[in-house]
């Protein structure tokens, strides 16, 4: 496996999850599309997440491997913290302003 491709796929998929989560809440047509795809918006997001990770890996698999695994792991940590905070912050804001 190519570690650079794995890291890039992880960053891209994390932000895809964040994007889908927020878009579902602000765009009824997008939510309807997800429901149409899988019957339930969270199930659709789950399926898209799994497929996207694999597709991103294949897109990035020819990347030159940097070998900087610790730096990549730190970037994943940063992306998880920022992405998770964006999701949590959005739902706090959504609840308080409803």
């Amino acid at each position: 496996m190519n570690s650079t491709a794995l890291f890039r796929s992880a960053y891209a998929t994390i932000w895809l999850i964040v994007g889908m989560t927020l878009l579902t809440e602000v765009s009824p047509p997008f939510k309807a599309l997800l429901i149409q795809l899988a019957g339930q918006h969270w199930v659709a997001k789950s399926i898209i997440t799994a497929i996207a990770f694999v597709v991103f890996y294949f897109l990035f698999r020819k990347s030159r491997e940097s070998g900087k695994v610790f730096g990549g792991a730190l970037m994943v940590l940063l992306n998880v913290v920022l992405g998770g905070s964006a999701i949590f912050g959005f739902f706090v804001w959504h609840f308080l302003t409803k």
Binding site: I17, T21, F53, I87
Partner: peptide, 18 residues
């Protein structure tokens, strides 16, 4: 539900990919 479930169900999706 409005904050915790909504956050939990989405940040959970990070875990399988990690």
């Amino acid at each position: 539900h409005e904050i915790i479930t909504e956050t939990k169900e989405h940040i959970f999706l990070f875990v399988p990919l990690l």
